[in-house]
Every structure is written in C-alpha cells, then in structure tokens.
Amino acid sequence: MIAITDLQKIYRMGDVEVRALDGVTLDIAKGEFLGIMGASGSGKTTLLHMLGLLDIPTSGGIEIDGTDVSLLNDHEKTMFRLYKLGYVFQDYALVPDLTVMENVSLPAMLRKDLTEKQYHDASIDILTKIGMLDRQDHLPRELSGGQQQRVSIARAIVNKPDILFADEPCANLDTENSRMVLDLFKEINEEMQQTIVMVSHEDWHKEYFHRIIRLQDGKVISDGTTGTKAH
C-alpha cells in the first residue's frame, strides 16, 4: 500500500542543519493499523507530513497505491488527499470561520461521488459517534482542545479515506474519550480494511496497533508486530 524508500528530510536554517528524517525505509500494508512512537523531535510529524503529501522530502521516494507521489502536480496531490487520504493534525487545524458541522462536511462537500444527503448523513453520523452532535453549530474557538481534536478526527474520517494519518489524535483527550476514538479507528480498520498510521506517546495505545515502529533522530530504530492481529 505504502512503500517508503530511503526518505530524507533536512531542514536548513542558516548554518544549522536538522536531519528530521534520516533514511527511513518502510512498507505499510493495506489494512494495517500502524503505530509510530518516539521521543519528541524524533521526526514523527515530519514523516506523517511527507506521507500525507503536505511536504516534499529532500530525497527518497514514496509510493502510495502504486503511484509515485513525487510525480503528482499540485492539483493531483490535492485530489489525492481529497479522495484517498484523511489527516488528523497534531494541532487540529480546524477552519476558524466554519462551524463544527461545516468543518466536518467540507471535504465531503467537494467529492464528486457524494450527494448532499450522503455527506450530510455521514457528518451527522460521525458527529454522533464522537459525541459532538450537540455542538455542530459552534465555531472552533468556542470548543475545548479535546473537543476540537474530536472534530478534527471526524473531519478526517467522514470521507472514509483509504488511508488515515493521525498525529497524536488523543493528546488532549481523557482516557475515556481516547478509548472511544481508538475503538472508532479499530472499527473502521476492521470493517473497511482501512490503513491507519497513527503517532502516539501513550504505552497503552499499543494494544490497538498491529505493528509499531520507533523513531529516533529521524531513523527507524525498531519495527515489530504486536500481538494484535491484522485482518
């Protein structure tokens, strides 16, 4: 599903060079629920950005579903993100001028394969699941961090993307809500063979992952399957 070869990302700021990713090679299979762990600054977000086509690697290749993404132009990348990918940002990244409902349905509204009723129903459905339906007409600034995070998750999965990238989606949630989110991820992963790549700090999240890779200084230092079975 996703093939990453010798991925490098170097940030240059004046004389200082930060190797955020330093030769990552990785294959992610379809239907896999992958956990990425590692210390702060180890390159987790950077890796996810590259995979989510939000940034361009310094060198190395990414192939998703057989497509070499470096060959896509701006518009094609946008369409790729719209139809195939879902992304939960570490800082939620909700659109400040739009209500919860509008934020969640926005990507669905642009899809040519969905009718207004379809995406409306899907948005209601997902907001119900994450317990935010009663806040559907609120603006992001009227919500708590955890609530914004849940809305961001709803927006990422409402389109039922083939691949979901989630950057610490539970960072601001209590255990109860974290479980709810992880159960939701597990459900869509099992039902629809959706591939999920999730960054996490919490040890207990491991029980949901099929496989965990650990990053340190931009390198993969461990890669192993957990007891949890892939389907």
Partner: peptide, 15 residues
C-alpha cells in the same frame, strides 16, 4: 494558515 489547512484537507487552489 487557514488557506494551508484548506489545501491540506483537499480543497483545490482554484476553490
């Protein structure tokens, strides 16, 4: 920032 977000979630630059 909002423009970046919109692009990131799949809103085309024309839109």
């Amino acid at each position: 920032r909002q423009i970046g977000i919109l692009k990131a979630i799949g809103v085309d630059k024309e839109v």
